[in-house]
Design a protein around this nucleic acid. Structure first.
Lengths: 123, 123
DNA sequence: CTCCTATGGTTCCCAAAGGTTACTTGTCCC
DNA sequence: GGGACAAGTAACCTTTGGGAACCATAGGAG
């Protein structure tokens, strides 16, 4: 019997199955920088430098890696303009927009729960 | 002028501010293993071994580290029973339950979007 | 012609996290 | 005595995460 997810059959995917590729997809978006990048791109396309400023604290290297990973997963699109100085714009794909909603909930949770989390730590 | 989040004032917390501790909280939950652990604990308390089986693919060491981190953040509680063999139960705190909802949305997104993501990659 | 700026990275290096395998502690059952 | 069970630790190695420095290009200032 083939495992779910590994076949082309319409088995439901399951993140609790380590063989299921959807766990890798979860790994891509369940990440601090991914959550911030996707949230930043929600209002519209942004350039590399704008993203670095908006995320404020990320290094070029890590931002590049994060963007490449999101692009590879099909969540964002990268468009290079043949200008000088070079201009590169990143934007959400349709799939990226669908991920933006649960990720916004996650960011909102973190912002809204910090006070309770801090109170819990000392108590 | 003090930055928001660093003061006791009722400034809104902001994950896009690198000084704001809520970014650390986001880092704790925006993580593959955290998302799976919290989802596993949603129906009720589980023992260490049960979690390791349920998550299927995580090592003891990483599971321990994940649980400690979630406990430190106040999302889960750890209860040790003085029995032989020893029994340790992990359960969601009230704060943990509140995080369970956005995390469930994230897992569901991953499971439901895999097919589209794969199609996007080849296209 | 040279220097400076702007942009979007890449490279090098180190620290931290992820992962694997083996081992521990303490009692019960055989 | 020896093995099993539960919940980890310890030692070790590999993969990411992160910071600082560097690079290519071309237009404009001097």
């Amino acid at each position: 019997m083939p495992t779910a997810c590994s076949t082309g059959l319409h088995d439901a995917h399951d993140v609790y199955n380590p063989e299921c590729p959807c766990r890798d997809l979860l790994d891509v978006i369940a990440n601090k920088w991914s959550a911030l990048v996707i949230g930043a791109l929600e209002p519209g396309p942004m350039r590399f430098g704008q993203l670095r400023t908006r995320l404020s604290g990320i290094s070029s290297k890590v931002l590049t890696a994060t963007l490449r990973r999101l692009e590879e997963a099909g969540l964002i699109e990268r468009e290079v303009f043949a200008e000088v100085p070079p201009r590169v714009e990143y934007s959400l794909s349709e799939l990226g927009y669908s991920a933006a909603q649960p990720l916004a909930a996650l960011r909102t949770w973190a912002e809204g729960s910090l006070d309770r989390a801090v109170a819990q730590q000392s108590g």
